[in-house]
Amino acid sequence: MYEEPYRWVEAVGNRRQYLDEQFKQGSPVVALAYDGGILLTTVSKGTPKLYEIYDRLALGGMGHPTDLEKLRFSLLEMAHVEGFNRSPSDVTGSRLVKYGIAPVIKQAFEEVYKAPFIVRILVAELGVKPEKDALLTINYDGTFEELAGCAVLAATPAAQTKMTAYLKEQTPATLSLEQALDLALRAWAIGSLAHQQEETDQQAESDPSAGKAGLVTAPVPSAEVLMAHVRGIAGGRTLECAVLERQALGTSKYRSLKPSDLAPLLPKSLQSVVAN
């Protein structure tokens, strides 16, 4: 039935709708450059969403855990084969993404008889110098973007835009790890609130008596409101943070922050989140 071109276009459109639906419950991921490297943050339930890929590469993901595992393994495989056969400095995030997994994701997305990957992926690469830091995001259809400074994954493009705008507006010239963590958590809260807002908006649309209140653009919430939201959600989940540290000893620059590392970095209001 997909032989006719317009059928195929329709099928791909349906897939988009289906996939957008799948990310609704997902937790945003924030990557942010700070003075000593790159910080990745998310709040996960159960399965971890931040991983080490190679000496200078980290991965953040949203979506189905099995799909994420599958793509994580192919990234690991590619990176290690390349690093062993050539040299670790030849393993770059942009090559892994552009020639490695982005085409695979695109193909899976467009083969309408097969299941697509339900994932959004963020690859952070620590350069030797800060100017060489790179952040890449890949959408479920294989579209990738190269960014600098900050990158986010969110359930919808609108939430993503809000988070990026917030980060761009709030980021000073240099950030310490503590400041970066604080900012990243606030940006995470912006994304998480945007998801909630969109859900209520959709309900409001289907229920005409509720009026159009949700469609008015709400002002950016204050830092306290955002932190309270993080505290509310992260309480029952895991606050996941990982860094790529330029000054770390040895060749592997990735370090995931344990609760004992996080405690001194977090503001007082969030201490309860890492305590349990």
Partner: peptide
Amino acid sequence: VRVLEHSFKYYRRTQL
């Protein structure tokens, strides 16, 4: 040493 270093790191990263 190269093989060992790489395989230990690969193990750590895949198996967490």
